[in-house]
């Protein structure tokens, strides 16, 4: 599943570790989500959406697969 996490993180000038700290996951997990290696669970997707104050479907796009 494609996502805009890397762009959103860059806009805030956060490192992967800093984003991981906000989301209660590791830097490796953030990297895995950004590169499409891992699709986040629904609770994590909601945490991401709340953190960036955006709807989930504006961050994740399953139609680009």
């Amino acid at each position: 599943m494609k996502n805009r996490l890397k762009v959103l993180r860059a806009e805030r000038d956060w490192s992967q570790a800093e984003l991981g700290m906000h989301l209660d996951v590791s830097r490796q997990a953030v990297n895995a989500i950004e590169t499409g290696k891992h699709d986040p669970s629904l609770p994590l997707a909601f945490r991401i959406a709340r953190l960036f104050e955006m709807p989930i479907e504006e961050i994740f796009d399953d139609e680009l697969d």
């Binding site: 570790a17 991981g20 700290m21 209660d24 996951v25 590791s26 830097r27 490796q28 997990a29």
Partner: peptide, 12 residues
């Protein structure tokens, strides 16, 4: 007691 990002990275 929640693990920090460093704790989580260390487990990897």
């Amino acid at each position: 007691q929640a693990p920090s990002e460093q704790d989580r990275s260390r487990t990897h």
